[in-house]
Structure formats: structure tokens, C-alpha cells
Amino acid sequence: MREIWTLVEVSGEKILRASQEALCEAVRQGRQLRVRTTALVLGSRIPGQILERLGTFGPDRVLVVDNEAVSSFSPNAYTDALEQLLAAHKPDVLLMGSSVLSREVAPRLACRLGCGLVTEATFLNPQDDGFLVTRSAFRPHASMIVSFQRQGLQIITLAAKVMDVETAGPFSYAIEYVTQPLSFTSDTVRVEDTIKEISAHLDLTDAEVIVAGGRGMQSKDHFDLLDELAEVLGGAVGASRMAVDMKWRPKECMVGMTGKIVSPGLYVACGISGAIQHVMGMQSSETIVAINTDPHAPIFRIATLGIVGDVRDVLPVMIESFRKAGAEAERQEYSA
């Protein structure tokens, strides 16, 4: 292996979280295997501070494609540009984060270049000529290990939130602009209209974090606490049947057999005893944090973490601490 590339997606002045994870993994592997790592950014007039920030992740080179065609959401243009770049530079591995764009671009690219693609990888095991990739299958019942059968480029997209993001530095890196002329095929896919900005009110089934309340919340007013916590964590608010029956929450929020069946990364059950009808709707959540006054509540049987206590005492502390942690993370980002 000589070179690992990472596709980095930038929106506005932010680097996509998934791309950061992919880049950090590439740098880690690159250091270990002593191969060159390249961060590839496509866009038009990308701000200089973004390129500088990419440097703090530690790639040997930041490669920039400055082109109007790839300035907005256009999988077709991305595919065309990447196809030509990869054919010209011939890196051994292309890593991508999991995103709306990479989901479409990666298979198209693999198809055009005649190379293998593994999506949603959770672990990369370096071999002589590439990676042996672990990914989940029949989730959550198995995982599989996949090898590439062809020489040449391997394209891998990484599952979200499995790789650590770390910045250290200062590193030495070079910023290069691609001078190679790129041609784009015409595409009949048009964006006619951007219908609406979806507000912070997330769909329950899509949310990665759900904060749910039940009878233990005691009154409608205390749901404000949940709203606040959900906002801090970037999640959605759910409710048990009890809370819906008491009209504390609309029916759309109900989690459980007759409501929505959800499977977020983190489920915070506040004042929910854990009746089986509710548990059916959320038991596949990755981590379940339960807060309840009754230490014998059935919710504690499935909870990963439990706090025996009153939600009215616990929630303000949680909100405050997460807020503090969030502010700290932001501060670190500034100094980075």
C-alpha cells in the first residue's frame, strides 16, 4: 500500500462529522503502515480555515478541487470528478464517511472504476495489499469480515460514530490544488425546489438520541426539562403511553408497541417504569439510560445505566453538565 485517500465533505464552514472520523482513521492507519495520507476536498472557493483545520487532523497532503460543478449537492458531478481523479492518481484506498452524498457516490464510483466497495465498515484490518474490512450483517445478530478480490483501488465507507476524532499537531502538510482539467457528464436530475427547512423537531424514528418521559414526569410542565435536554443533546422527545393519555404529549411522540418503534444510539427513559408495551418499542436502542424513583422498576432490567432518583432532581443536573461539556468541546474546536 502506498497511499490512502479520504474524501472530505464540507458544508459551509463546517467539516462533516463523518468525514472527520474517516480522515482520522485514515491518518491512524497511514501512520501505522507508513503510507501517505491525502485529504481530498471538493467545492468552490473553500475557505482557507477549513483547509487549515483539515491539516490539524494530520494528513500528509490536502488536495483541493476548486470547481463550480461540485459546489452544491450533486452526486453526479462528484462521481465524475472523483472518477477522473482516482484514475489519474491511482491511490490504493479511498475512505469516505457515511453520508447522503457518499451513499450514492461510492457505489457509482466503484461500478465505473471496476473496483470493490464495502459500505458501513466498523473496523479496518490492514493486510499486505489493502484492508480486511469488518462490518455488521443481520444487525444486530452478526458481523462479517470481507476481503477484496481484485487488485487495485478499494473503496470503503465507514459507519457513523465508530471511529474516534482526534486533533493534535501541529503537523506539516501540503495544500495542493488540482490542476487537471475535469469534464462533467450532463445529468437530467434537477433540484426544482427546496421545499422546507426541517426544524429542530426531529422525527423520532430518525433521531440518534431520544429523551422520553412517562408518568414519573408528574406534570406537563416538567416536559420542558425533556425538551431542554433533547435540545442540548440534539435529539427528539418521546413519551410513554401514560404521558400521551394524560395529554402531556401528542400521540406522535408515543414510543412503544402502539406508537413508534425506535432504535436510537442513546435512549434516556425518564420516569418510565418499563411496561412491556413500551419496552418493545425501544429495547433495541444501543444504550439505555433509565431514571426512576423505584429501584425495582422493570426498566432497570434492560437499562445499560440506571439512576434511582427523581427526574426533577436529575434532569437539571444532566442539562447543565451536557451544556457545559458542549461548550467545552466548542472551545476546543476554536483553539484547534
Binding site: K161, G265, V289, V308, G309, M318, S321, F322
Partner: peptide
Amino acid sequence: NVHRCPDRSSTLKVIEHILKERLVVL
């Protein structure tokens, strides 16, 4: 894994754990 002391410190411990394990991306 059930925390039996409903005070501030136990909540903080849970939060620390959540942050350490990167269960949430703020």
C-alpha cells in the same frame, strides 16, 4: 449498573460515562 444514590455525583458519573463512551455527539 443501577446507581442507588440519587444525588448529584451519581448523575455526574452517568454523564461522564456517556461522554466518555461518545454515546452522544453534542
